[in-house]
């Protein structure tokens, strides 16, 4: 890793140049640079080493299994089989369902999370009594692990003793209990509800943070222009936080895509494999012992997300420039 210690152009460097400083000698600067480079390399080293050893080494080592016949139930033949595992996956009649489920899972969780999270953030932006107490309470889902959320909702969605059915029946919406986790459509709904519940808070926090960094002068100016609430929202607020919002959504998509915990705890991908997303299916194959196929699936995930991220960021760029 080569450090040429060239400073990024930031607004602070302008401040720096404004302050009266004696011009540095060329030689002096160079020596200084070399030393700095070593310091900076030292700063980067711990992070790089940790990530290389504990993330990249196992990942790369795991990836090679994708091209081998690697089944823990019988390791007598672990020969290289090229794209064999990928072919098996694509030929699996369930693969289409799993991909479709993954899309439904990501979009179905994300959109309500963004919308509700945004609304929540807008309401939380202005100070009101008990706001900090309210914030602390509303942060609660974020404190719970995915597995626990899954178990918690599995219990609430229990057909016979679950509180969801009981409330729906009390309210008169249904007459007989719904077998939530036993019917594919209901099960998918239930896991997405659980995930929405989990994610709204995160968005609310991130968006609230972004909103608070929008300067009040902009709003005041808009108010003077006589802009209404809706217009202010679309012409001031949204553009101002567009970048943060865009990046948050991207990160969130990646996380939801890679988030098997809730589903695994609630349905384990069932009934009839109808609530599997790619990552839960990966757990399933791992448990069956077929590490080769699981790794192949893992690689598919990594490349899909990489491609997606690249296109997403390219699509975001013009908006960034407009700012």
């Amino acid at each position: 890793m080569a450090f040429d210690a060239q400073r990024t152009v930031t607004r602070s460097s302008e401040t720096g140049s404004a302050s009266p400083q004696p011009p540095k000698e060329y030689r002096h600067k160079k020596r200084f640079n070399a030393r700095t480079a070593w310091t900076l390399a030292g700063f980067m080293a711990p992070a790089a080493i940790f990530v290389a050893i504990f993330t990249y080494y196992p990942m790369i080592s795991g990836s090679q299994m994708a091209f081998r016949n690697w089944n823990l139930n019988d390791l007598s033949d672990t020969s290289w089989i090229g794209w064999g595992n990928f072919v098996t996956l694509f030929e699996n009649p369930e693969f289409g369902t799993i991909v479709r489920n993954t899309v439904v899972w990501v979009v179905g969780s994300l959109v309500p999370q963004v919308v509700i999270g945004f609304a929540l953030a807008l309401f939380l932006k202005r100070k009101f009594r008990f706001r900090s107490g309210y914030q602390a309470l509303i942060f609660f889902p974020w404190a719970v692990s995915g597995f626990l959320i899954g178990m918690l909702f599995r219990w609430m969605f229990n057909a016979e003793f679950g509180v969801v059915n009981d409330l729906l029946m009390k309210a008169g919406f249904i007459d007989t209990p719904i077998p939530w986790l036993a019917e594919p459509g209901f099960a998918m709904t239930a896991i997405i509800i659980a995930n929405i519940w989990y994610g709204v808070t995160f968005f609310a926090i991130m968006i609230l943070a972004a909103l608070q960094s929008v300067s009040d002068e902009m709003y005041e100016a808009a108010a003077i222009d006589g802009a209404g609430k809706v217009r202010t929202l679309f012409s001031i607020t949204l553009p101002a936080i567009a970048v943060t919002l865009g990046l948050t959504i991207l990160l969130r998509i990646i996380w939801i895509f890679n988030f098997p915990d809730v589903i695994w705890a609630m349905t384990g991908g069932g009934p009839a494999d109808q609530t599997h997303i790619i990552t839960t299916y990966m757990i399933k194959i791992t448990q069956e012992g077929d590490y080769g196929q699981a790794s192949a699936l893992g690689l598919i995930v990594v490349f899909t997300l990489m491609l997606f991220a690249v296109f997403y960021l390219m699509a975001m760029r013009p908006r960034k420039a407009k700012r």
Partner: peptide, 15 residues
């Protein structure tokens, strides 16, 4: 029970 589509060992015994 309709929910028994998803019942494994623990759920059956609990049922």
């Amino acid at each position: 029970p309709p929910s028994s589509v998803a019942w494994g060992y623990p759920e059956m015994v609990q049922g």
